[in-house]
């Protein structure tokens, strides 16, 4: 009897220890990011303080410098425009394709699918060089169009893959019933499938927006100075004369806010989204 209660005591201790480990790991994962967030609200002297300041008088001066005096508001607008436009473009191009992959025996399906996936797996630099030369040759380098189109390339595969999964979840009996009633395939798609898939479309759109919003290399290389997005503006503040920590931290806060908000909504679907449906 005493042996049993001893064992129970040990396992309770072990359970407590596990909780401590989990919380410590979480703290380690979060602390560096929180430090950057906090830095955004510090005066310059507090940012550079050789003893880390936990308590300080908060200020919005960094945000003022970056977004009112500095050019970051333009960058913010560019980010919003390109991320939204490329998400929309992805949906327009990808939804019919995803529907076809879900419902029909598409001729050559495997090969098309593989091609679409390759563009997602290839390193950004391998996609950006051909696009750079392409946009240069047609005179679109440094425009919002170039950035939008480029960001569509790597999100299209994701949209097709995710939406096919979501379409597969809608019972086929629904479209077959409508087809026997005399509806056409296009009507089935627009009147029945799309409305039913609305939650899936919302999730897909959010993930694709996030990727475009966070994207750096395409915007940096193809946007130039004319269509610079928020992330693409970062290297400009890391100069040989020093790093503008306050402004960078303020910009980081603004870049991260939509990401943090959306993660609450799409958390459940993130596993699927980031593993290409390999894990549900």
């Amino acid at each position: 009897m005493s042996g049993l209660s001893h064992r129970r005591g040990v396992s309770r201790l072990l359970g407590r220890l596990e909780l401590v480990v989990i919380w410590v790991v979480t703290a380690v994962a979060l602390a560096p990011f929180l430090w950057l967030m906090v830095t955004a609200f510090k005066h310059r002297t507090d940012v550079m303080s050789p003893t880390p300041k936990i308590l300080f008088s908060p200020t919005l001066s960094n945000f003022h410098e970056a977004f009112v005096i500095g050019p970051f508001t333009t960058n913010l607008i560019n980010s919003l425009v390109t991320a939204s436009a490329s998400t929309l473009l992805c949906l327009v191009l990808g939804l019919p394709a995803a529907y076809a992959f879900s419902r029909f025996r598409v001729y050559g399906e495997k090969h098309v699918f593989f091609y679409v996936l390759t563009t997602r797996m290839a390193p950004g630099i391998a996609l950006v060089l051909p696009l750079y030369m392409f946009f240069q040759s047609i005179g679109l380098l440094g425009t919002l169009t170039a950035v939008t189109v480029a960001q569509t390339t790597f999100n299209l595969a994701l949209v097709v893959y995710l939406m096919r999964n979501f379409f597969n979840d809608i019972p086929r009996e629904l479209d077959e019933a409508a087809l026997t009633e005399g509806a056409g395939e296009w009507q089935v798609f627009t009147r029945i499938i799309l409305p039913l898939a609305r939650p899936g479309i919302a999730v897909t759109a959010m993930i694709s927006f996030l990727f475009a919003w966070n994207e750096f290399l395409f915007a940096f290389m193809l946007g130039g100075t004319g269509a610079q997005t928020l992330p693409a503006a970062f290297p400009g503040l890391v100069t040989p004369h020093g790093t503008y920590w306050g402004q960078l931290a303020a910009a980081s806060v603004v870049v991260s806010i939509p990401v943090l908000i959306m993660i609450w909504f799409i958390q459940r679907h993130l596993t699927r989204g980031l593993t290409f449906g390999a894990v549900k």
Partner: peptide, 20 residues
């Protein structure tokens, strides 16, 4: 959700977090 934050941050922000 807290653990996933480093993963969903913009990579440039991740680089900046490390530098800071």
């Amino acid at each position: 959700p807290l653990l996933l934050i480093p993963m969903v941050l913009a990579p440039v922000v991740v680089g900046l977090v490390a530098r800071l």
